[in-house]
Design a protein around this nucleic acid. Structure first.
Lengths: 223, 223
DNA sequence: CTTGACCGGTGACCCGGGGTCATTTAACTC
DNA sequence: GAGTTAAATGACCCCGGGTCACCGGTCAAG
């Protein structure tokens, strides 16, 4: 009948088991993500996040001490997922060309706007109102993924040294956040940028990132 | 005796002449700048800006409709000044090496932390709560300076085409904002990053920017 | 010099949103 | 079924951006 025996477990009103708490946490992260995708960090209100999950505002603060902590946790998830995806792709094949690598990286970011948008906020906003512990945990995780990626990069591009590989990742990180900010602009600016003579200020994220990384790698190889 | 006859004109309590209004506007921008340099955009309160100039909070809003407008105006000034300085330096001499150019750009940003920090906020924060007109005026000014710089770049580095010159500027812009965010981090993160194994995440803005631009130019020349 | 209109300045006030906590009550235990 | 625990609630606090009715300095006209 109306029984949900076969359906996947529904979270009880009070999440007491760790497993239910985790599920509720996920629910909140999903809500935050959906709202952020539709608007911006500033426009997402904690009350909205609560409403979207059918919970009260106070409850959100039982799971995340601050708004920034909530979004940093979200970024943490997205970052780990993205690195895993990228590292998976970097595991295939032998030696690559710089352009191949650049395309792989740029294409791995298609459909990951949420990730790059949040990444651009990481230093400026998200790490402002957060405990040292959470900041440390986040950076620790970045460090691990970065190490793996650096190793894989050296396999694909033998002209890279351990130092240049890590530096390359930093530069790509900078380009990702910088270009993301230039590419998706505020509604006000969008209107302005449609003017024809504004072309030099318009940025196609994927194309531009591919171009920049390719050029960087040309430069490193030409050393 | 106590008369300030020889001293530079003091702004009267009521700024009625355009010249006095302009002076008051400058005063507010200076106050905002000083406070921003000591803290961050979020931490600067409009009431503080007012207090620092000895005015009431409401008065600040007579000169700038929103907090974002105030800081965008400040960025506008700093950006124009920086471009002027850079373009001046780019006017000297004949053909340069890529590394020379990279160093010039990176060094022109030493002591301009305020500018780069604000630039990093431009798209994410400042253009959020501002009139279309102000956004347009700002971008228009960027466009002009960019054009001049692009022309000068082609003189110093003949292997650049009009297209690659403009693209280079966009990439440098992205690197500037991206690296700035990575370089000066929140107090919370600062503590974390001092740990030895966090080295790969530490960024020396000038050094890193020089390296990145040099590599980019190697890449472009090697084409 | 006096007067009155103009307009820059003021600060009490409004309001929205992050964050708190005493209270309620679902979930589990015996 | 009674008792215990702690998740959830939402009224409340506080802060900071932004407003506006009022104040009073300035100056042109008379």
């Amino acid at each position: 009948m109306a029984g949900a025996l076969a359906a996947k477990r529904v979270i009880p009103l009070r999440a007491r088991r760790d497993e239910d708490k985790e599920a509720r946490r996920r629910e909140l992260l999903d809500a935050a993500r959906a709202l952020f995708e539709a608007t911006s960090f500033a426009q997402v209100k904690m009350a909205d996040v609560a409403a979207r999950t059918g919970l009260a505002k106070g409850t959100v603060f039982l799971y995340f001490p601050t708004k920034e902590a909530l979004f940093l946790a979200l970024l943490d998830d997205l970052l780990t997922a993205w690195f895993a995806k990228l590292n998976g792709q970097l595991s295939e094949g032998g030696v690559w060309t710089g352009h191949q690598l650049a395309r792989t990286v740029a294409l791995s970011l298609v459909g990951e706007e949420t990730f790059t948008r949040l990444l651009a906020l990481a230093q400026t906003v998200l790490e402002q109102n957060v405990t040292v512990e959470q900041a440390r945990a986040f950076k620790e995780r970045v460090l691990v993924s970065m190490g793996t990626t650096a190793a894989l990069l050296q396999q694909r591009l033998p002209f890279l040294t351990p130092q240049t590989a890590v530096q390359l990742i930093r530069h790509v990180h900078a380009l990702m956040t910088g270009l993301r900010q230039m590419a998706d602009i505020a509604p006000v600016a969008r209107e302005v940028l449609t003017l024809p003579h504004m072309a030099p200020l318009r940025v196609d994220f994927t194309a531009e990132l591919t171009a920049a990384i390719t050029t960087l790698l040309h430069g490193l190889e030409a050393r």
